[in-house]
């Protein structure tokens, strides 16, 4: 089978995320990296391959993003993907979730995957929803937040936590699965894999190449329209204790609790 993994480039965890006040879009300056949640999706693909219950011919990393996103693809390849696809076009800038999911679905259609895997959330957008959008466009069943996935023949047996506890769901392939971060412990890439990543096939597609209808993407054509951003209601800052002398720290905690009659 063929697995496509959706990956995204996001600001590094150490970078303070902020908005560009004039466009309402994310400020894209600063160090960027592969979305950490996506490494779980790549690892899940690798475990399907290594599990051996079904032969995996290919694992393809797919992203939509600016030119710099090739680095996220290289990282994905160093973690095990065989090659990658980069949908990159000025016309896509500012797309909302629905438009992004649509464009990704068009890109995936060219690959005809048996399984599409993605992360539970992007570290910057935090929409939790791309998987459901992509699945609807591809006409595939889908689940999000999956923390256990067993492949058997033409179907997946998935477990995930929903509102009332853990659900076990059988999903027939082809399918779109967003994995939760508890599904696995992603491996570290070997030095050899990091060095070799840039040599693997990387196809760069324009919106036209992917047959993305330009009238359905980009900030201006997105159905959800960003109109303004404002600061959240001010909240009194809490007190902070840096623990240097634990005996003293604990005394201060107890005094704080005692003052509020919590002990």
């Amino acid at each position: 089978m063929k697995i496509c993994v959706l990956v995204k480039e996001v600001p590094d965890a150490a970078v303070e995320k902020k908005l560009n006040p004039s466009t309402g879009r994310m400020d894209r300056s600063g160090e960027r990296n592969l979305n950490p949640y996506d490494t779980h999706a790549i690892e899940a693909a690798m475990q399907v391959r290594e599990g051996g219950s079904i032969p995996v011919e290919e694992i393809v990393a797919v992203t939509m993003g600016p030119e710099s996103a090739v680095r996220a693809l290289h990282k994905a390849v160093s973690l095990g993907a065989d090659r990658s696809v980069h949908l990159c076009d000025e016309a896509l800038a500012g797309s909302d979730v629905a438009a992004t999911g649509y464009a990704l679905a068009k890109t995936l259609e060219r690959e005809s995957p048996d399984l599409v895997l993605l992360g539970q959330q992007s570290d910057d957008g935090e929409c939790y929803t791309i998987g459901a959008v992509v699945a609807e466009h591809l006409g595939m069943p889908s689940l999000t937040q999956v923390i256990k996935m067993d492949v058997s023949g033409e179907a997946l047996r998935c477990e995930r936590q929903a509102e009332y506890g853990y659900d076990t769901v059988e999903v027939k392939l082809p399918a779109v699965i967003s994995v939760g971060d508890a599904i696995n412990e992603p491996r570290y890439p070997s030095l050899k894999a990091i060095m070799g990543a840039k040599k693997k096939q990387l196809d760069s597609l324009s919106a036209g190449d992917a047959q993305v209808d330009p009238a359905k993407v980009g900030g201006e054509n997105s159905a959800a329209q960003w109109i303004a951003a404002k600061p959240p209601p001010a909240k009194a800052a809490g007190e902070i204790i840096e623990d240097e002398d634990t005996g003293e720290t604990v005394e201060r905690i107890v005094a704080w609790l005692d003052e509020r009659k919590l002990i």
Partner: peptide
């Protein structure tokens, strides 16, 4: 809020070509 609402809302946005805001 919850989990299913996210999945249904997103699928519906795709089906209808509708805008969606979450959280």
């Amino acid at each position: 809020g919850g989990l299913l609402g996210f999945e249904i809302g997103a699928g519906l946005a795709a089906r209808l070509g509708a805008g969606v805001a979450m959280e």
